[in-house]
Amino acid sequence: MKRMERRSRGVFWTILLFFYVPIVVLVVNSFNTDRYCGPWKGFTFKWYDRLFHDHEIWQALGNTIEVAVGATVASVVLGTLAALAISKFKGKIQGAHYGLLYTHLVLPDILMGISLLLFFISIGLELSLLTVFLAHTTFCVSYVAMAVLGRLEDFDGALLEASRDLGANPWQTFWKVQFPLLLPGIAAGGMLAFTLSIDDFVITFFVNGAGAETLPVKVYGMIKRSPNLPEINALSTLMMLVTVLAVVASRMMQRSRNPSAKPAAAAAALPEGQGGRIRR
């Protein structure tokens, strides 16, 4: 057992190295004076400087966030409703419903991209940020629905019965018990939708119109036009920094929101009556 652990741990750390070496090389090269990202020729910030003066990138970033926010809101609403429907009702309709969402989840991006492109062409819809938003919402719905469904699967049905038992009607039961308990799942689904939307390249590439470039599409264009442009390294480094910070921040937030004993103990220590005013 010990030997197996040691060996597998060796494999694991090697793989982590494999994961991080390309990224480290990329980050290092973003500070390299050499235009071709070859050997180290000195430290520079000029690529970052150039990046900040590229207003097209800022425009693309704006587009990306606009689409991501819209798609997240739309897909959270649709996905949550879908998850509730699937978990609450059984039968052929919900089987098909789940099948649709699941199939869409496993379908390769390129197929979603091409089919939506052909669809938009067929119905004569001009490619624009709107089509990007529609496409993003479509693939995000599946992810949100799965995230909320996961939460619903762990959901203790007795809680709903308890709520009804204590005099709540179905509507009150939903808002006072089910919704607050599903909120973490919905938030996780929303987070996932937001990041996926920001990161998506393939689908966007097919359905975006002129002037509706998102950041990944812009980056792709830059890579294609001038390979090894260190400016892309700089941009990538910044994007990675932002995601890492976002992940760390969300972790910290989760930790601080966890029910720790301290606030509860503090409230309990208060003299009677005052505790009553603290609560919500």
Binding site: D156, A158, L159, E161, A162, S163, V177, L181
Partner: peptide, 8 residues
């Protein structure tokens, strides 16, 4: 309820 069903 058997498993209490307290609202967490």
């Amino acid at each position: 309820f058997q498993n209490y069903a307290l609202f967490p």
